[in-house]
Design a protein around this nucleic acid. Sequence first.
RNA 1: GCGAGAGUGGCGGAACUGGCAGACGCGCAGGAUUUAGGAUCCUGUAUCGCAAGGUGUGGGGGUUCGAAUCCCCCCUCUCGCACCA
Length: 803
Amino acid sequence: MKNYDHKTIEEKWQKAWEEKRIFNPDIRNAERPYYNLMMFPYPSAEGLHVGNVYAFTGSDIHGRYMRMRGYDVFEPMGFDAFGMHSENFAIKMGMHPAELVPKNIRRFRDEQLKRLGAMFDWDHCVDTTHPSYYKWTQWIFKQLHKAGLAYQKDSPVNWCPSCLTVLSDEQAGGGVCERCDSKVTTRKMRQWFFSITSYAERLLKNLNRIDWSQTTKTAQSRWIGRSTGAHIRFPLVDYFGDLVVYTTRPDTLFGATYMVLSPEHPLVPEITKADQRMQVDTYVEAAKSKTPFERAEDKEKTGVFTGAYAVNPINDQRIPVWISDYVLMGYGAGAIMAVPGHDTRDFEFAKKFSLPIVEVISPDGEKHELEEAYTGPGVLINSSQFNGMESEKAIKKITSYLEDKEMGEYAETFRLRDWCISRQRYWGPPIPIIHCPDCGAVPVPDEDLPVLLPEMTDIKPDGSGLSPLARNEQWLNVQCPACGGPAKRDADVNDNFLDSAWYFLRYPSTEFDDRAIDKDITKKWLPVDCYIGGNEHAVLHLMYVRFVTMALKDMGVIDFEEPFKKFRAHGLLIKDGDKMSKSKGNIVNPDEFFEKFGADTFRMYLMFLGPYEQGGDWRDEGIIGIRRFLERVWRFADDENLEKGMTKDKDTLRAIHQTIRKVTEDIESLSYNTAIAALMELLNELMKQDAHYADEAKILVRLICPFSPHIAEELWRHLGQEGFCSAARWPKFDEKLCVEDVITVIAQINGKLRGRVEVSARASKDEVLEKARTDANVVAHLEGKTVVKEIYVPGKLVNFVVK
RNA sequence: GCGAGAGUGGCGGAACUGGCAGACGCGCAGGAUUUAGGAUCCUGUAUCGCAAGGUGUGGGGGUUCGAAUCCCCCCUCUCGCACCA
């Protein structure tokens, strides 16, 4: 008997799979297509992260299982290689991303991902930085533009005054530049946006009907953030016009004692009185220079009175109009009616500036001295004809009162903002727009796509705040496609999230150069049957993908509007109870474990760490347990003395069938850790028997195959099987053989365990009770007591309640 | 602050609709075998106690014949979001 040598076996079977093309489904003619998708990686220079291995293994097990259930599983892999991460890293290393990225991809694919033993179909690989891909990313941009979903507006970007560069929100986390720790400021720039907000309602509503992890759906729902309330019009004193605010609490209207505008509100310069102008201007200037982070940081409320007054439409009271940066221009109307009695922020503000606080909602109908804002529901007081009304009802009544007077109307607002997709960077697909002084923003004609990213040696951002592409005059200056006059290309590139918003659509259609996606093939394979990935993408990637899919559906490009029938978020992999990080030095290097223990052990150990959807805690020491298990499997199945056929022993047979059932159910619910535990238990059981049978081994090997496919193939062959274990049929269990005929029933007295009795599974209640009553330990504990009640749970327990 | 998830032996974690707490694995201890072992096999391993028997699932209450599981209050950790009117 040979020893288990993972290295030879894994190389051998990886080669065999590739040669026989067993993981390349017939894209055109597959009979039972099943699209198994996982989140494609960013090919970092550090190489494959163990978190990638964790994610891919879990998804691959699902794919392999479905394959063994007879589906034509399509499991593609690709590379999300555009973006600032690559660019910054390349700059740091003094390299060009165009030279670094292909290297990283080769390493990922050939040295790492191929060792994983997943069923990737490399014929359909996608690389977002390749012109054959980003040509179609640009095409998607154009489609959205054509549909009126892309528009330009001035918008602030994060700006590092020391690095002189634009930063992404992630790089500017906490208001501090990731690289130099200087305070981030903002700059205004004209940028492209996608109107994802016009899909807010649908994005929210569809959540009810898609089979996604609840955590992800909750995160999306919060991110969309639908709220209902009213727009209310406050006529301005000494000014022709109204001030419109949005509120979710029209019921508190009588408590509005002042108004607050966002400093950016267009009415601010209009309504400010002469004697307040200096202060107002200073405040507005200061607010402009602050980043959103700084604004949020300063918990202390600030603000300035504009000198203007507005009239509360419900009671004609004159109330002062202030400005403050706690009111955000980007939400609602950019202006609020302040109700200090019932809003924490307004309360703070009112206290600080000695503005009146009026209680209008009371939890008990009584009047109180307010120590803090009361934000809960209650009964209206100090509210004239609405006094005594429940706040919930008052919301409706006051809204319709305002509607009748044409001073307001019911309104809904979403937290979701439009998607800014311009990036003032080099490493991305250029936005396919040409700006013409006469014709405006003109899309690049389809026949001119892709707009190639020009080769440039100096790709560093300069202090201008413009994209490095703006410096490339030769590339920048073009003829307007519409009028032929001199024009300039848009120098920005698109957000990395656009690259990844449609990659799943491209995979099945990679063979086509003349279309982004092939209609027939797309019809056959999409939407994706199962998507597995990290929950860090719950709101951005997974929202953008849904938006793009919906938009394409509305344009008639595809005929479904939700991209993934099923989505499951896997948990986070940590190490020794801590988050892995380079600085802590507690990272797991996949190469080391592929080498030392092999992909089979590595895969199975990762899945054994904990529930897949909750994550796991990696400990180097633990992996040996899985290695031992696989070696035991090896010894069991490779034994020359295996007897032909199947065991006759009823208990063993039952254990086998129960395990098939358990593993099947657990794989389906992604409970991989308990599936593996069940396999271990079965093997322990089988090893105890005097005789070992070939048919037992054949079942065991197939059950292990999704987790540890190489060893399974090798043993499958040893067992004299033709073909691939990966393509073999998943074992079936017989429900009848799973049933126990003798069961252990526990005997409790007052809920405490006092004995166990073995009874036939078909025993009647009386028989079981009688047997329990006569158990020696039960007898001892019943001594001198009166049984007042007997609880009988069939197949489980009896409980004697005594006094 | 808001939201989501979690808290069970020395450790990772099991426990289906409330019904034997600690499956499986690591580690540890003892033994067998071996020239040797980071090999293999066997036995033990929540805790107090010699035992009978207690006690135990973050803490405190409750519901129930019976609670890790359900309800209320509190504490801790992780991950999101964060002045969203």
